[in-house]
């Protein structure tokens, strides 16, 4: 049987270090399989989050060989064989233990974004008419599995720790899904500029690169939001037109 070498970060807020492991691997093994095997065999208390094991829940986020990845969708086969595979926790959030970080900040941020506010129903039975092309425009954003890998990689959070002033790419995607929702009537533009710090994003596109759902975060969500916000802030005419058109 083939074996693979792993270096897994273990520790807590007070510090930690990489620990070496050797794992017998089976065909098709993903990083999460190896981590769980290590956990079952020798490190029973190794902290790690996972649920679906199919890239659908966004629980198993970590940095594999330095890259933010879903452990359940990272095949050993696709990683270099001649060096140990390193696995470490996300960097943008406080460490809890081993591979688990405290991501509760993300849940607080979401609450600060104004919720969905639909227009009055089109039909008497309380339903709306929406067409596939209206829906398709936002489907991309609604694929988000809240893995927070984009939050992890964004330098505004990771290096500059602007957690107070900047909501991060995940929540621009969320805001974009609401702003472009065919039924939504809320206006989030002032918030985006003032409370949510969209101006901090300097379009490095790192977030787009790591998104496991392939959401084009920067081009399709952030840039259009920036355009709306700028229109509003600096262009009184555009503002007037928007007022007349309802958005």
């Amino acid at each position: 049987m083939k074996t693979a070498a792993f270096k897994i970060w273990r520790g807590d807020a007070s510090g930690g270090a990489f620990q070496d492991f050797q794992v017998d691997v089976k065909p098709g093994y993903v990083v999460l399989d190896a981590v769980r095997k290590i956990q079952a065999d020798e490190a029973h208390d190794m902290a790690v989050r996972w649920n679906c094991k199919a890239g659908r829940c966004g629980s198993c986020s970590a940095e594999v060989n330095g890259m933010p990845r879903l452990m359940c969708m990272t095949k050993l086969h696709d990683l270099p064989e001649d060096q140990p595979i390193t696995v470490e926790p996300l960097k943008a959030f406080p460490i809890v233990r081993d591979l688990v970080t405290d991501v509760s900040w993300n849940y607080e941020v979401k609450k600060r974004i104004k919720p969905f506010k639909p227009r009055a129903p089109d039909h008497e039975d309380g339903t709306w008419e929406m067409h596939q092309e209206d829906v398709d425009r936002v489907m991309e954003f609604r694929k988000c599995i809240e893995c927070f890998l984009c939050q992890d990689v964004c330098h505004v959070l990771r290096d500059h720790h602007k957690h107070e002033d900047f909501i991060g790419p995940r929540f621009f995607v969320y805001a974009a899904a609401l702003e472009m929702h065919p039924l939504d009537e809320e206006d989030r533009r002032d918030d985006l500029r003032q409370e949510h710090g969209i101006g901090y994003c300097n379009i490095t596109k790192c977030c787009t690169k790591v998104c496991p759902e392939g959401i084009t975060i920067t081009d399709n969500a952030i840039i259009p939001l920036k355009e709306r916000v700028v229109d509003r802030a600096y262009d009184p005419l555009a503002k007037l037109v928007q007022l007349v058109r309802g958005k």
Binding site: G126, T127, W128, E129, M130, H131, V135, R142, P182, L183
Partner: peptide, 18 residues
């Protein structure tokens, strides 16, 4: 199911928008 739509869910559509 309809209520989900009032809460923001987006589901695939029929040609007449339902």
């Amino acid at each position: 199911v309809r209520e989900l739509e009032a809460w923001g869910a987006l589901m695939d559509r029929t040609p007449d928008g339902r």
